[in-house]
């Protein structure tokens, strides 16, 4: 079944023809060519595919593209204000060496931003560790990711994002 779908991705209106079974992550990567969002486990465990749909984090491997009809989607590509100015969360990941291979990083960053906003920019280490249960990293051991998120929370507040 071919269906026309239209949504806003990173502030730009996009549309395309998809199959009913096309996943949101496939639409982003294969139809729009936005490969920043990764597919890790494809079983909604690892969180590499996390994007924001209407402001909240979702696993885009477990949502159909047609379910995002009319939605506002934000991916990792839509965070930085410009080519030379990263989002405070991206900056904090860089400053704290919160990535090694980088595969999980797009999902980590998207989940982390949602987490900071849900907790009104106030987080402690225990909360961050608990809230990261839907994002798997197999190389950093999480310590620097936790540090980065704790550092980014006040930076995001100061930057008003």
């Amino acid at each position: 079944m071919t269906i026309s779908v239209a949504m806003t991705v990173n502030g730009k209106p996009v549309s395309g023809k998809v199959e009913a079974r096309t996943l949101l992550v496939q639409f982003l990567r294969e139809h729009l060519g936005m490969t920043g969002t990764h597919v890790g486990c494809d079983t909604s465990q690892c969180g590499a595919c996390v994007v924001h749909v209407d402001g909240t984090s979702v696993k885009s491997c477990t949502m159909l593209a047609v379910q995002a009809e009319g939605a506002k989607v934000t991916t990792i590509e839509g965070l930085a204000a410009s080519a030379d100015k990263l989002h405070p969360m991206q900056e904090a990941f860089r400053d704290n060496h919160a990535l090694q291979c980088g595969f999980c990083t797009p999902g980590m960053v998207m989940s982390a931003i949602d987490m900071v906003k849900r907790h009104n920019y106030q987080l402690d280490e225990t909360t961050v560790r608990h809230e990261l249960e839907g994002n798997l990293c197999r190389c950093t051991g999480y310590h620097n990711i936790v540090k980065a998120i704790l550092a980014a929370a006040p930076a995001m507040k100061a930057a008003g994002v």
């Binding site: 969180g47 984090s57 696993k59 477990t62 949502m63 989940s111 809230e131 839907g134």
Partner: peptide, 9 residues
């Protein structure tokens, strides 16, 4: 239940 992204859906 699940994790934050799962609870959102």
């Amino acid at each position: 239940i699940g994790d934050p992204a799962v609870r959102n859906r």
